[in-house]
């Protein structure tokens, strides 16, 4: 695993930046970063599902919205504290995701993509239709978080810490899944479903697990998003959000954890920066990024950085061996000794 993950100093550096970021970021930017983090949680789920399980879900934005609405509804109707709505959002969204995924997951990846594409398109309509539950066009409000005394002067900082904590939980969950037996099983069925099945992997069960966890993370991200905004409406969960989450996953690097955060920042800041020039420019960049990443590196920004870093670290040994060929793998093993 070591040879395939980023060097530790980069990870530690990123964590350090995340911790000191609020000190010098203005409140507005800090809020944008929080929103990006909430998306990243959903992207992380998708990375588990798409990168490691090889199943594509185009409804991650709808599940994200589902989580947001669970949070808002529990808070608005039952007066539950926003903190306590988050686990509920994760669990209920996982249940909703499983209900959707169960029929499609029995089959090859394409069916899941088609069904979930439809769900993404239908979700905003459903929100409008069931307006007695969701508040329709006018949406639902969410109480703001009670800020503890030390943060009273700057509630944004407390929001940021809560968001970072949720992202941390998500990272922990995904790492636990990936580094254990389940992770190996997931990768095995992705790389060759038939052989994995012949070796005793229950494909449907493994894929359902991945889908359930991925949906739970989408729900958690959605809940955080709702709390951050303090108000949600169907306008925030159009089909484009689902596609944006796929874009984030691909751009960041779909088989990485770090990539989810790069992707989250990408989909929040690219539209902000490009909308001044031309409203369509952001989407042109998105489209080119999707195609470009697939054609160039396949593992997004993180994949590129890894290539560069590994290249720099190993300049003495000449060419960087490719993991794809047997010879390359032998070279890698030799290098690591």
């Amino acid at each position: 695993m070591n040879s395939r993950s980023l060097p530790t100093f980069i990870k530690v550096g990123a964590a350090a930046i995340a911790l000191i970021a609020p000190v010098f970021l203005p409140d507005f930017l800090l809020f944008e970063v929080c929103i990006a983090l909430s998306y990243s949680i959903a992207v992380l789920g998708l990375n588990l599902l798409m990168g490691f399980a090889g199943q594509i879900c185009l409804a991650q934005g709808a599940l994200f919205g589902f989580g947001a609405y669970v949070t808002a509804y529990l808070n608005a109707e039952f007066g539950l504290s926003p903190y306590w709505t988050l686990p509920a959002a994760a669990v209920l969204t996982a249940a909703a995701g499983l209900a959707v995924g169960l029929p499609a997951l029995r089959l090859q990846g394409l069916q899941l993509a088609i069904i979930t594409f439809g769900i993404a398109a239908a979700f905003p309509q459903a929100l409008l239709k069931f307006d007695w539950l969701t508040g329709g066009v006018s949406g639902l409000p969410i109480d703001s978080l009670e800020t503890p005394a030390p943060f009273a002067g700057r509630p944004e900082l407390w929001l940021y810490l809560v968001t970072v904590a949720c992202a941390g939980v998500a990272v922990l969950l995904v790492s636990l899944v990936l580094f254990g037996d389940t992770g190996r099983t997931l990768r095995a069925q992705r790389d060759n479903a038939q052989i994995a099945e012949a070796l005793g992997v229950n494909l449907t069960k493994v894929r359902l697990w991945a889908f359930g966890i991925s949906s739970a993370l989408a729900g958690l991200g959605g809940g955080v998003f709702a709390i951050l905004n303090g108000f949600i409406s169907p306008q925030s969960f159009l089909a484009a959000v689902s596609i944006n989450i796929v874009i984030a996953s691909i751009v960041g690097g779909t088989t990485t954890i770090t990539g989810a955060f790069i992707g989250g920042l990408f989909i929040v800041f690219v539209p902000t920066w490009t909308s001044d020039i031309n409203l369509a420019l952001g989407n042109v960049i998105y489209g080119l990024a999707l195609i470009g990443v697939m054609m160039i590196s396949g593992n997004g920004v993180v994949g590129l950085v890894k290539k560069l870093v590994c290249g720099m670290l190993q300049t003495t040994s000449g060419n960087v061996p490719s993991l794809k060929s047997i010879q390359g793998r032998k070279q890698w093993i030799a290098l690591r000794k």
Partner: peptide, 15 residues
Amino acid sequence: PIEAMVVVTLGLFVL
């Protein structure tokens, strides 16, 4: 793999 192709055609969609 399938998911890569879906991503590319999704890119065509957006583009």
